[in-house]
Simulated assay, not measured.
Amino acid sequence: MGDEHGADGTATSRPAAARNGTTARPPAMSDVAARAGVSHQTVSRVLNDHPSVRPATRDRVLAAIAELGYRRNSAARALVTRRTGTVGVVTPATALYGPTSTMVGVEEAARVAGWFVSVATMRQFDGDAMHRAFEHFLGQGVDGVAIIAPTVQAVDVLAALDSPVPVVVVSSAADVPSVPHLHAVGVDQQQGARLATAHLLGEGRTGVLHVAGPQDWFDAQDRLVGWRAECAAAGVPADDPVVVGWAASDGYAVGRRLVREGLPDAVFAANDQLALGLLHAFWEAGVRVPEDVALVGFDDEVGSAHYVPPLTTVRQDFTALGVLAIDTLDAAMAGADPGHRLIPAELVVRASSVRP
Rank of each mutant, 00 (worst) to 15 (best):
R257L: 11
F116K: 09
R72C: 07
V46T: 08
T94A: 14
A109R: 06
P26H: 09
A336C: 08
D272C: 07
V179E: 15
D299L: 05
N20P: 04
D299G: 04
R341F: 10
G339D: 06
Q191H: 14
A7C: 13
Q191A: 12
V289P: 01
A269R: 01
S172H: 05
A285C: 11
N48T: 12
A56D: 15
P241K: 03
V236G: 06
P264M: 13
A24Q: 13
A75H: 11
L276S: 08
M122E: 13
E135C: 07
D327H: 09
R205C: 10
M130Y: 00
T22D: 14
G69Q: 12
W283K: 03
A95R: 12
D162N: 11
G144H: 03
R260G: 09
I326P: 02
A129I: 14
T319I: 12
G139C: 07
A336K: 05
G21Y: 09
G286A: 05
D8N: 08
A294Y: 01
D219H: 05
L182V: 02
P27N: 07
Q140H: 11
V155D: 06
L311C: 01
P177F: 11
D162G: 09
G6N: 15
E67R: 03
A95F: 15
V145H: 06
A110P: 02
G286C: 07
V242W: 03
A56P: 00
P164Y: 10
T84R: 12
D299N: 12
A196K: 03
A285L: 08
E346H: 02
F218P: 00
A18W: 00
G114T: 07
T91C: 15
S353T: 01
V236K: 02
D3I: 04
S30Y: 08
A160K: 08
D143I: 12
P99G: 04
R77I: 04
S101Q: 14
I343A: 03
D250S: 13
A24D: 07
R341Y: 09
V80R: 15
R223L: 01
F298A: 03
N48P: 10
C231P: 04
D216F: 00
T197V: 15
A336Q: 11
R83K: 14
R25I: 10
G297M: 08
R256D: 15
E261T: 05
L96N: 08
S74F: 11
P99C: 06
V80G: 11
A294S: 10
P344R: 00
V112E: 12
V314E: 04
V289N: 02
T12I: 15
A17K: 13
M122P: 06
P177H: 12
F137P: 03
T151V: 03
P15I: 07
V87K: 01
I326T: 03
L347G: 09
A16F: 09
P166H: 08
A193V: 01
M29H: 00
H136P: 02
T328K: 02
V211S: 05
A305L: 03
Q189A: 13
Q153C: 08
T23G: 14
V236E: 07
D31A: 06
Q273M: 07
G262Y: 09
N48F: 14
A270P: 01
G114Y: 10
